[in-house]
Design a binder for these strands. Sequence first.
DNA 1: TTGTAGGCGTTATCAA
DNA 2: TTGATAACGCCTACAA
Lengths: 337, 337
Amino acid sequence: MVITIRKVAKRLGLSITTVSRALDGYDDVADRTRARVIRTAREMGYVPSRAARQLRRQRADAIGYILPASGSQFTDPFFSLFIAGLGDEATSHNFDLLVSTAAPGGTAERQIYARWVQSRLVDGIVLNRMRVRDWRAKYLAQNNFPFVAHGHTHLRLDFPYIEMDSRTVFILLVEHLVERGHRRIAYIGGPRDVTLQGDRFAGYQEGLTRTGIPFNESYIVEGDLTRNGGYHAAQQLLALPEPPTAIIGANDMSAIGAMRAAHERGLVVGRDLAVAGYDGTEDSEHTQPPLTTLKQPTYDTARQLVRMLIARIDGKDLAEPHVIIQPELIVRASTGG
Amino acid sequence: MVITIRKVAKRLGLSITTVSRALDGYDDVADRTRARVIRTAREMGYVPSRAARQLRRQRADAIGYILPASGSQFTDPFFSLFIAGLGDEATSHNFDLLVSTAAPGGTAERQIYARWVQSRLVDGIVLNRMRVRDWRAKYLAQNNFPFVAHGHTHLRLDFPYIEMDSRTVFILLVEHLVERGHRRIAYIGGPRDVTLQGDRFAGYQEGLTRTGIPFNESYIVEGDLTRNGGYHAAQQLLALPEPPTAIIGANDMSAIGAMRAAHERGLVVGRDLAVAGYDGTEDSEHTQPPLTTLKQPTYDTARQLVRMLIARIDGKDLAEPHVIIQPELIVRASTGG
DNA sequence: TTGTAGGCGTTATCAA
DNA sequence: TTGATAACGCCTACAA
């Protein structure tokens, strides 16, 4: 049996107005009354109906996040961390987090965004793994719907985001490898339409330029940011007549797959082949050998994004709508550290 | 500007009733009218307000899942897969998925369950990583709130669940190791209050019994089901005067941590030390060497759980309220395969 | 086949 | 300081 505000009011011999106001902390309620109301409400186990409150206040106190993938191949710890960060921060603001999954670019994805926005199921949305021409950002901006993003898009849109300065740290990484004596440095990228790919690849290229290493087309392979993608890409690279002595993955998953390919060919990673990744989630510490990586603060970024989003939902102006964070180069044994 | 059913009705010169009924597929609407309504509604971009519909129908069309952890150490791919499964299946039923995080056993956890249940934010809840005396199951059962679980509890409660027959496959795993010549087989467990620990440990013990290997207390270490936990537990085991020649982790994370500890001591996993885990998510294929594991169908289990939950929400009786699934022993190089 | 009207449980406006 | 009452947007019993 569900307790409504009406029942609480009746029990107390008060009007529902007073009960509502007492509970919501308005200051035009007598202290004694408020105390009575709060006590009784708790005793009766009263919790406001979300739907009713939402309907009346025109606000869901909820944010949404749609995993840009579906199906069973979805195990990049980056996303676990990201979701944990979103959830923890949302909870601390008394917001709920809605999560769904949708393969990028499909109609299912468009539908779910439309549904969430139009039905006002959530007050704001967090975007992730941004695309070069990101229709999601465009759509949300056009509908004037609050959103924040992890990363940017190439479209001319103004929205709050937190972005990693991946380019700079990829340069550092290439320099690190060159210092270790590598000249044949390969790169396993992500899909072209994802902005992280462009940024990281640009850093890779700039690193080569700065160290005077000629760019070699055959050392570039497109992966899909999964372990398996990295594995197959690396197989290809290692079968080259003149295989690379170092492989950089656009993320840790790619690098982990590459390590497997190396091992299968009998190469000792860290000695015969250097491998490095990007993300720095916990699993990169536990590979064999431990993986050199560019560590980004995924969990904290997610939390900060939620703070920014809630500020936007509340109509506040953000002091810093665009945050740039520098990932950290962590050298481990996979590059012979 | 938000489109409500009223605006659609006005535009069409119809009553909101007719619009509502046309859209919901009632058969007492003229075909021509229905066609007009649907077309106009789409044109105007009408999507029903969730809050209003929810309030009226007393139903959220949403299910909830609370990650039994919080903080930044949360990267077990098992949970990513599980969430992806929940999300995909929920979406296919036009349900939404609410996700939150809460450390097990704390007051925060109690609060969030209470809030979700009392405020009718979700219609049902999926439980995971069950505890021996699981207050969540008890609480939900007492409140007659629909829920399903991955695993069981030792409390006498009747609810639908899908359970892995971990005991049986752990026996197989021990037998596999014994066949490979191992006699000193260690076990890195999970926290005691989690039922998966009891089941898996029981299988381990039974495996020893069947193969006539005496049980050795010092080969049992309690981990926390994370890579780091497994790492520290294995350090302890390998420092023993007579260290084990095989280590079984209660899950893959523990095993992966154990492999790292082995490598750090200069042991070659698969030759000097056998290591095996449980879960079989994609990452276990990509460790060095690839990890022998007991593979459970995490993604499909999550999907099936959602189907069971939605059936319960709809008041249907389940043909099979208790499903037992046998994980599969996958032998890889980490046990010298 | 279509329309009227009541109510789901809140919050907010206004009056007492 | 408190209470009556009107929405919020939708669904549905009932009437036309």
